[in-house]
């Protein structure tokens, strides 16, 4: 029934430790949300593919897992159901299925529920640890809620211990918990050439530089530098931005694409009414992905044409070299800018 996709399997492997840790942090709720999301995601794609005798892509497993991991731990199961069906159907199958979608389906589903059910999801954060016992109940509505997600703490002027950010013992969405596990996954994905290191590096570098600049420039709304380890900034950089289908294709475009996502994420996180901006940032990045590719291709063609013109001009004669060189150097400088 599944079409074998080794790249998608590697992403699933890299997500396993993060998922296992989240089960310890939030208990059976995580299992239910992941199960609902996987089952309905696969079902949606299966029903659609059956009509044209296609196979279900393994990418849908990644989409469903990432979507479940992006929810707050006590999110109601029906919200996961609505979100994943919307994600797979509207953001993927309608465009023609795997490989043809413009937007990352997991992000589309997440934004759909995030905008629709903002208040419910806002009330779905529970204290982390001990298989979710801190919430009072293991399933259903939690008795104890947490408003102390790291970003909220920083916003109200508090501090979050960096060690907790590294180990993942802090409140927040299911999958964004442990910085160490996310870094390990990033190393694995880059090592196996599954994810583009250019996207991850440029995203973190550009976003980090902007966050630091805002902080040290004394902007009032800016969060402290440690905020780069909180929220879903790293999780999104490693798993969402690097989706090979919705990212641009050329290696050179990866730099621009990653930087665009990183900067947008920090701008939205700092200056908007939304607590977190990473999903919107990936959406913006996806929107411009093909345009970036186009721009890079145009640049590369122009450079190639210039080089060829130069190569043709040199053996022809020595005298026209001087004036022929000058404009080329000028445009070269322009490109460097």
């Amino acid at each position: 029934m599944f079409q074998k996709q080794i790249i998608m399997r590697r992403v699933l492997y890299s997500l396993t430790p993060i998922w296992a840790l989240s089960v310890w942090l939030y208990g059976p709720r995580v299992v239910v949300l992941t199960a609902v999301s996987l089952a309905l995601g696969v079902l949606t794609e299966y029903l659609y593919e059956k009509r044209r005798n296609g196979k279900v892509s393994e990418a849908v497993l990644v989409t469903a897992t990432l979507f479940a991991l992006s929810l707050p731990p006590a999110a109601p199961a029906w919200i996961a159901a609505v979100g994943i069906v919307f994600a797979v159907f509207t953001a993927k199958m309608i465009y023609g299925g795997f490989g043809r979608n413009i937007y990352n389906p997991a992000i589309a589903g997440r934004l759909f529920v995030y905008i629709s059910f903002a208040t419910v999801l806002g009330r779905s954060f529970t204290p982390a640890g001990n298989f979710g016992l801190g919430a009072g109940t293991l399933l259903g509505r939690p008795e104890v809620l947490s408003s102390a997600t790291p970003l909220a703490v920083w916003r109200s002027g508090g501090t979050v211990p960096v060690l907790n950010l590294l180990t993942g013992l802090r409140d927040g969405s299911i999958g964004e918990s442990s910085v160490l596990l996310i870094l390990a996954a990033a190393v694995y994905l880059i090592w196996t050439k599954t994810a583009s290191w250019r996207i991850i590096v440029s995203e973190v570098a550009a976003g980090g530089a902007l966050a630091l600049a805002l902080h040290f420039a004394g902007v009032k709304a800016a969060l402290p530098p440690a905020s780069l380890l909180g929220g879903s900034f790293l999780f999104v950089a490693v798993f969402m931005g690097t989706d090979p289908v919705s990212a641009p294709k050329k290696p050179a475009s990866h730099w621009i694409y990653g930087a665009l996502i990183g900067i947008t994420a920090i701008v939205i996180r700092t200056f908007s009414a939304f607590p977190e901006g990473t999903s919107f940032a990936v959406f913006v990045g996806n929107t411009f992905a093909s345009m970036i590719d186009d721009f890079v291709a145009g640049r590369m063609n122009a450079r190639k044409a210039r080089a060829e013109a130069k190569a043709a001009a040199v053996p022809a004669g020595a005298s026209p070299q001087g004036p022929g060189d000058a404009p080329a150097a000028g445009t070269g400088k322009e490109a460097a800018k």
């Binding site: 759909f112 905008i115 629709s116 059910f117 903002a118 419910v120």
Partner: peptide, 9 residues
């Protein structure tokens, strides 16, 4: 029933 805010937008 929880209203779907996005439908109003």
């Amino acid at each position: 029933f929880e209203p779907w805010t996005i439908m109003i937008m």
